[in-house]
Amino acid sequence: MEEAQALRGLSGQIAQLDRLDETLIERMRHEALTAPAPWKAEYGEFQSGGWWTTSLMNASGEAGDVLIADGSARSTPLLKHMPTTAGLLADLGLSYMWVRLARLEANAFLWEHRDYNELDQVERHRLHIPLHTNSSAFLVTGGTKVHMAGGRIWRLTPTYAHGVCNLLGPGRIHLIADVYADDAYDRLARRTQLHPSVAEPLPQASEAVLAERFAAARRLAGLGYIDAAEQLLLRLFYSFALPEGTVYDLIADLHTVLGDSEANQRWTTAKAKLLALAS
């Protein structure tokens, strides 16, 4: 009963929409892997490094323009190299704000964050079409791990705190479409589900485990590996169900212990920005 309720709650954050034809996905994957894409690394503060995007549709029509914003999207030259993908986007008939390919390399992370905070307050949705993935690439939202398997369209509500990782690789490529709500979207979203098998609740972290991981981070920092110490704590978000922002608090605490008040302040500010917390 509780489980079903939790799953219903989670389906507001992440849901499975329509299935897509396997051969269509295969052709889209081939296009994504072979098209001459100008991959860009933006949103540096949100990621570990290894998150690359390139635009298929946006307001400027430039593939290298990847900082998303409101507007009516048109095709970039890159999409002309991807006729199958262009065909699917046209068939869906959605009101596109931005369509991107996103590549997440092995051992790369998008840290716990919220999206859309900087955009207009209108109804919009984020759709994911996994093109190339592996079992160690997953999303965490609401303390639950979801591997977005290939073969269908997924809907993510990125205004909930979430994070994405590709722990071990190989690289993951998703098509991500931000779309405005309209009749076409409503038709697509009529049949949403979240099958229990795709949602794996993460374990709670005991005090002892958190203390041990904090000690491991201190050990790394003590040896001079500050970045690695911070990343070790950031990665806890992908292993345990933690209250929102815990990993940022732990890093701030680490710097307090290390006597670095400037770094403590920097991470406190980063937490507010990444989680779109009111100041």
Binding site: A106, A216, R219, L220, A228, Q231
Partner: peptide
């Protein structure tokens, strides 16, 4: 610390 270092930063 080596396992943590190589996992987190070494891949």
């Amino acid at each position: 610390a080596l396992n943590d270092l190589m996992t987190v930063a070494g891949g």
